[in-house]
């Protein structure tokens, strides 16, 4: 099995909400001081999905990440978890893109990698929460896609995917090659091993510029955008919480029930 996993470096989405700041003048997010970026969590789960298949069937996992300011410690994490190769699309020309231009660049890189059976993406990147690059890559490459996977099992020439739906899941069968997007229901991604970390340290990523890909620079990065962001803002919170007290915690609990009954919420 040859597998490709697309991972994105993002500001840690689990950083406390109070640390989140934007610069309204430039419509951009100010990375919180002292909080290092991470691989978008669903992308780590996409790596985990690929590793489980590698464990069962063997194979090669190639990781592709597009971005600028990619911290090596961060983007090498998939290698330390057990992936084999890391390709970075790290060029200013790729920067400032939207779903359209990001998918176009990633699809071109996947084509250049050439041989693959499954492309994995996360269900959505934890920055813009857009959830389209996976389907976009599939459309550009003419691949079937199954989104929101919680389990992926490889058979002879087919893959069986459990796809999350609101009250359960569907069991979907798809032929190879295919693109699959992964959701958190897949389960926790594994930790990096010491051995993995050591070998990841020694491994240099392959870096591709637009000229290495068969793609028109008008299609990538900011130049290829199809949506324009007019404004980025933080919604104001009203924040008037009435704290219910009591002689002790139990008493406060009883007082809460009385209060909610008084305001007709019970």
């Amino acid at each position: 099995m040859n597998m490709i996993v697309c991972v994105k470096q993002v500001i840690d989405p689990e950083a406390p909400p109070a640390s989140f700041k934007i610069d309204a003048a430039t419509n951009s997010v100010v990375p919180p001081a002292g909080v290092p970026p991470v691989i978008s969590p669903f992308d780590e789960q996409a790596i985990e999905a690929a590793l489980r298949i590698k464990d069962a069937k063997g194979g090669k996992i190639t990781v592709i990440s597009l971005g600028t300011g990619l911290l090596r410690d961060v983007v090498k994490k998939p290698l330390s978890m057990g992936a084999d190769e890391l390709i970075l699309l790290e060029d200013p020309a790729f920067d400032g893109g939207d779903s359209w231009s990001t998918a176009a660049a990633l699809a071109a890189a996947i084509k250049k990698v050439g041989e693959f059976d499954i492309v994995f993406c996360g269900r959505q990147a934890a920055d813009w929460d857009s959830g389209q690059v996976g389907s976009g890559i599939a459309e550009i490459l003419g691949l079937p896609s199954v989104t929101l996977a919680k389990k992926v099992e490889v058979g002879d020439s087919k893959v069986t995917v459990e796809r999350v739906i609101p009250d359960g899941y569907e069991v979907v069968e798809v032929g190879l090659p295919a693109l699959i997007t992964v959701s958190n229901e897949l389960g926790e991604p594994r930790y990096a091993t010491i051995k993995g970390i050591m070998s990841a340290k020694r491994k240099e990523p392959i870096i591709w510029a637009p000229a290495d890909l068969e793609i028109d620079t008008a299609q990538i990065g900011a130049a290829g955008r199809r949506v324009k962001m007019l404004r980025l803002f933080q919604p104001v919170r009203e924040g008037a919480c009435e704290i219910i007290e009591g002689e002790d915690e139990a008493d406060a609990g009883a007082n809460l029930a009385a209060k909610l009954a008084e305001v007709k919420l019970l």
Binding site: P144, I165, E170, V172, E173, V174
Partner: peptide, 8 residues
Amino acid sequence: RTTVKDTV
């Protein structure tokens, strides 16, 4: 290209 085998 996909078949839904089951819905749980």
